[in-house]
Write a protein that binds this DNA or RNA. Sequence first.
DNA 1: CTAACTTTGTGAAGAAATTCACAAGCTCCG
DNA 2: CGGAGCTTGTGAATTTCTTCACAAAGTTAG
Lengths: 207, 207
Amino acid sequence: MKRIADSTVRRLSIYLSFLEEIEAHGVLTTSSDDLARLGGTTSAQVRKDLSFFGSFGKRGLGYSVPELSSALREILGLGRQWRVCIVGVGKVGSALARYAGFAERGFNVTGLYDSDASKVNHRSVGVVIRSTDDLERDIRAGKYDIAVITVPAENAQAIVDRLVKAGMKAILSFAPTQLTVPEDVELRTVNMAMELEALTFALTNRS
Amino acid sequence: MKRIADSTVRRLSIYLSFLEEIEAHGVLTTSSDDLARLGGTTSAQVRKDLSFFGSFGKRGLGYSVPELSSALREILGLGRQWRVCIVGVGKVGSALARYAGFAERGFNVTGLYDSDASKVNHRSVGVVIRSTDDLERDIRAGKYDIAVITVPAENAQAIVDRLVKAGMKAILSFAPTQLTVPEDVELRTVNMAMELEALTFALTNRS
DNA sequence: CTAACTTTGTGAAGAAATTCACAAGCTCCG
DNA sequence: CGGAGCTTGTGAATTTCTTCACAAAGTTAG
């Protein structure tokens, strides 16, 4: 299969969130033009994005909302449950563990890890916090599909290296630092500093 | 000036964070090759990115770390203080208000707003929480350069519309929903759902 | 059934971003 | 001082992404 661009995947997420919204309002059909308007792109882009995966619409009519949203969920891999562990149960980590939207989308936080001995064996949102010493063992046992790391920047690469070595293939990092992983590991980083800098750049250079 | 691509600005942030790191370790010079290796790109890309803004290196030698990092700070608009307000003092909002890295980079959280009357007039991190009713007045008074919104998805667009109408030009949203703003307003969204979906897409389609 | 009207799906064209490749400039060493 | 050795800065080539534009296919009205 042709390599799908990152930007395409992002847009699919956006389309899906609209489809779910209008589906909840009982809308039955929509068009590439609607999706484009709401998603801030063009109708040609919407159709091109979808065309990588097949043909979902009816000419002259548009798309069936339930059909297309279901297809997108399948494409994005949301048609199943994912077992997620969170490494680093600080402010951000516990906020994430508590986040309801997580479970709704099929992401089950089934493991919490922290290196702070005073937190270990306590519970957060009904899940026992384990020592990071147990990480490798649990990952090797195949307990998780995705790891979310919310540890300080200075520990992040070390944790990532351990996760990767133990066989983790998908990592979402909230550490404000650039991380390196092998080609076959999927890493995404949520970096607020970078987003703020994009804002200040715009304010400084485009006004 | 030629329009600078978003991807370029992102990379500049990455370069800067490395430069600051090695600067702290006393490293005095570096090369496009070093920056490329650490930032996961190519040396030609690094040089091209920098070339949009001028000529910062010495042929045969590379870049002066202090000079280049200072130049990048200036380019990214980090050479000054920015006044930030946070709208929505829930879990995420108060975690952000507390975040130390914020102030280090010149971002001063000087205003907190919430619509929940039971929070108003209480303090968080030394800042009094005001009612969102006061938002327009304070923005019009020019109190803030940047607004960070951490409100529920369903309220986000309404808040953004109010911010924009009152004259806010830069907004960072943590609401998991697509938002619309006029052309002259810079909006960035941190959307964890989207990042997770990029991961599950990769796990589903590339393995 | 036919004609007018929609909207998709997709090659082709165009634009944008990345990579190549090399001349130009600087340092260092003998 | 001159030549060998680096590394930058940048046009040109290439690749990737987006937009255009239109045939194909369906719908609706008469």
